[in-house]
Amino acid sequence: MIQVKNLKKSFGKNEVLKDINVTVKNQEVVVVIGPSGSGKSTFLRCINMLETITGGHVLIEGIDLTDKNTDINKVRTEVGMVFQQFNLFPHKKVIDNIMLAPMKVRNIPKEKARAKGLELLRKVGLEEKADAFPDSLSGGQKQRVAIARALAMEPKIMLFDEPTSALDPEMVGEVLEVMKDLAKEGMTMVVVTHEMGFAKEVGDRVIFMDGGLIVEENVPVELFDHPKEERTKAFLSKVL
């Protein structure tokens, strides 16, 4: 479970998140939409402390990330993250990208980590690419490897930061398919995306953010078909 309480984040004088309150229940899929600069990526990055939090609290499974005594590395092993730019490690083969964290952080023996890595690659349909270097993969393949890499730590929560925004249109589908499978398996997910179709189909709840605030949140059908706020209506009229 993720609890975000009165979250504030500023970059210098620029206040990016003004007062965010969200609770994500276990096995829930929450989709965050909004115009660029609305703070949605920053919000996501605060959930695993890739940004230092200016004010408020973020709790993962009841553990407060803003507490100085919290071992942030341990919490991060429970929270997988997928980036817009994939951020695969280019100097390591696909399988080594996946095996690294389980071996170094969880001290899992090499053979076991490799077996698990191959299993995850099979799951995302890329078993034959195990010994390839990331640079030889297409964007969609890279992102699927990135998802497998995050899953190798067996996280309880997965965060997706615009996972399909850097992809060619014909590769968006293969990544969304993997994400849909994850959602079906009951993974708790927070997804920042511009894919409204995905939000409608997979999301349990959609949050619309603008100007560092949550403007409106609701189940997808309600939010997309009967938005209450003018700002939401204006945004949806442009993207739908």
């Binding site: 695993n48 991060r76 092993t77 730019q85 690294l100 964290a101 952080v105």
Partner: peptide, 13 residues
């Protein structure tokens, strides 16, 4: 790239 450090840290390293 800054994303390399972020990816590594997000995995718990």
């Amino acid at each position: 790239d800054r994303g390399q450090m972020e990816a590594a840290r997000s995995l718990g390293l």
